[in-house]
């Protein structure tokens, strides 16, 4: 199993240079059956990352550019009256895919945002009393420009909770950047890349991830973290039980990527900033959230 995941990561690494950590996090998120939010400035390779992942995993890929005039129907699909059959016919929207890249999700109106987020939660679309199941696996990668840009609708915290992880890509290091500049950019190579696994393998990977052993000692540690986040005066609100579950599942996936059959605290520490960062709302405006998360990690004994 380690071979498979290593291969996936290696392949993705060829396209997205110098971003192994982010690739692993994204993969872990997907293996834990969670949705991913990438937050960064434009041009950092968000779309490429999403596309690459889909390609490597052999998944169908759809991209929707969110704008302020995008309606829920544009994403979900619409029922149209068919004169020939005298019936309403459902035209599935782009959401009917394996990997949906919701680009710049914060540009869409809250209405459209919430429509998408409901689909993310339920993995099905309900229109006019009919329910349409989405293909499995279903994985949303949303990108978002950092807020405080005029004309955007930042996702409210209740919606943010639906994303298992939030990652940032940041600027590449000099070596990777040079390599990038020497090539024509990753997008060209995307077409060449072949799938490393098929659907079935992916699903078995997901199942295997859920079976990674979590000991009582580790649960103690996890609960320590949850407890602290709720007690600490640094945060406006502590981590929800859903966040706790997400932490566990992500740590399991991370342990699997490391080729271990059990979770250790280091796994939790590795994924915590990504899983908890967007759920914890810091109290003060003076220090950044990541500092508080570092503090949280320091305060809880292993």
């Amino acid at each position: 199993m380690k071979n498979i995941t290593d291969e996936i990561i290696a392949k993705a690494n060829e396209i997205i240079l110098g971003k192994e950590l982010q690739i692993k996090l994204a993969l872990a998120c997907l293996l834990a059956k969670g949705h991913l939010l990438i937050e960064d400035l434009p041009g950092m390779g968000k779309t490429t990352l999403a596309h690459t992942l889909a390609q490597v995993l052999g998944l169908q890929f759809q991209r929707v550019q969110f704008t302020s005039d995008l309606l829920p129907a544009d994403v979900l699909g619409v029922s149209v009256y068919d004169r020939n059959t005298a019936n309403f016919k459902f035209h599935p929207g782009p959401v009917f895919t394996n990997v949906l890249l919701a680009d710049e999700i914060n540009r869409a109106t809250p209405k459209t945002q919430s429509a998408l987020l409901e689909v993310m939660e339920e993995a099905q679309v309900t229109i006019d009393a009919s329910t349409y199941a989405l293909p499995q696996p279903f994985f949303v990668i949303a990108t978002q420009n950092p807020s405080s840009q005029i004309g955007t609708f930042a996702l409210p915290e209740s919606q943010l909770d639906r994303f298992l992880m939030r990652i940032t890509l940041n600027y590449p290091d000099t070596a990777s950047e040079r390599k990038l500049l020497q090539s024509n950019g990753g997008r060209d190579q995307l077409k060449k890349i072949s799938a490393a696994i098929d659907h079935k393998q992916l699903q078995s990977l997901q199942t295997a991830s859920q079976e990674i052993y979590v000991s009582d000692s580790l649960l103690d540690y996890l609960q320590g973290i949850l407890q602290y986040s709720r007690q600490s005066s640094h945060f406006n609100a502590g981590l929800s039980p859903r966040a706790g579950l997400g932490l566990k599942q992500s740590a399991q996936a991370w342990a699997m990527l490391a080729g271990r059959d059990h979770v250790i605290p280091e796994d939790v520490q590795a994924i915590l900033p990504s899983v908890a960062g967007h759920r914890l709302v810091s109290n003060s405006t003076f220090s950044s959230n990541s500092e508080h998360i570092a503090q949280l990690l320091k305060a809880v004994a292993v």
């Binding site: 250790i264 605290p265 280091e266 520490q269 990690l297 320091k298 305060a299 004994a301 292993v302």
Partner: peptide, 9 residues
């Protein structure tokens, strides 16, 4: 060892 440090780390 720091209290928060993982055993392997």
């Amino acid at each position: 060892k720091f209290q928060h440090e993982g055993v392997i780390d």
